[in-house]
Design a binder for these strands. Sequence first.
DNA 1: ACCTGAACACCGTTCAAGT
DNA 2: ACCTGAACACCGTTCAAGT
Lengths: 238, 238
Amino acid sequence: MRQDEPVAPSRQPSRPAPRRPRGRPSNPLLTVDGITAAAVRLLEERGQDGLTMAALARRLDVAPSALYNHVADKQDVLRAVQDHVNAGIDCSAFGVLPWDEALAAWARSYRDAYARHPALVPVMAVTPVRSAPHTVAMYERVSAGLTAAGWPGHLVTNVVVAVESFVLGSALDTQAPEDIFDPGDLAAAAPAFDAANRARPGGDTALAAFEVGLQALLTGLRVLRAPGSVPGEERRTP
Amino acid sequence: MRQDEPVAPSRQPSRPAPRRPRGRPSNPLLTVDGITAAAVRLLEERGQDGLTMAALARRLDVAPSALYNHVADKQDVLRAVQDHVNAGIDCSAFGVLPWDEALAAWARSYRDAYARHPALVPVMAVTPVRSAPHTVAMYERVSAGLTAAGWPGHLVTNVVVAVESFVLGSALDTQAPEDIFDPGDLAAAAPAFDAANRARPGGDTALAAFEVGLQALLTGLRVLRAPGSVPGEERRTP
DNA sequence: ACCTGAACACCGTTCAAGT
DNA sequence: ACCTGAACACCGTTCAAGT
């Protein structure tokens, strides 16, 4: 039993609807920030498919077409939501902790944020940062931290993007069902795969994979930044 | 000038439409494989939004509702397409080259495949492998390769998932526009970020970031598998 | 069993009319 | 400028009717 019509936060308890006049209201009912906040709540409460322009309008007690006076389209709403989410990512460790620890803390906070909003992962991967102030502020903090730690300029953005790709992929993995690797009837045809799955420790498996990858990535990045400081660069050992 | 109505592969050159009788055809017009193949072509030619049940039906010269005699829903079509795409990922290096080189070759092929089908990234991250034979076969080859190379069973799947997360995130990054990091008006407020972007070499930037991350990941994994074989595990160097 | 065609309950978006 | 309400061109999916 769904409850979609909210039984009216009624001013008049028994009238069918407190209809608004047809014309322009004396002061605006909507703002971009208000639309963004409502969209975030909708996304958190009902998930990816729950964010429709109609549902958003209903939340704001407005006709769907009213939204288009403040945003260009639905993609525009998603961009605003994305910047809001990025504002919540913690990059405060840069300039405080060593660069690798700061990178790890940022990556964990980043993954957490997008694990809560997996629908935004494809948006984040593809949306230009201009006119997304919190997003730019985040990249500034990270870039400044890496640069100050001695990373050569030509590598900084590539390192950021590499970590980000791992983080966003890991955020998606968070949404996988527990039995995603259950081979079903195909178990007999895939003995090594089946054995590996059985040997995998239980608990938060997505987190375990993320931490394995994060540690590996950081170890490799330490080598990349300061060749010679880390044993093993000669590679191959039989 | 779009050309959506294909001008008829006409049997009768001037009649309005070669209408089929209303009832069941003497032998089936559709198969799951045929639907899958048409969906792949549609996805490649028109992108994510081009794959609709109506477009798929038109390609197959059938009413949209006919599809539901062979697939459960659109998600089911995407699952079939995903298994088809996974069949094209090259994991032949496992058991032939050293495990780290095989892992790198697999990752590159995997990223290429999903860069061609970014719409499938969220599908791949979340879809159970049972009844996806090619997908299971891929994981079997990879798991067997890592296990044979001495990876402890409790780590194998986590390593696979970690690499996969990086690969899928990198496949999404492939879709980013060239100017994604152009800070526009915000450049003055983000000097380190702006400088890092200017110092980033041109060319295929997504590929460059992928290769940086892949090398780092592999270096770290070598350390994880064989502690002591690689210098630098003592970490911190001021 | 496997197709057609009509129908349903949605989408995002546009636009004239209103103040 | 900023709202409403009607309208448009789509979606994915269901189902009775047909053979």
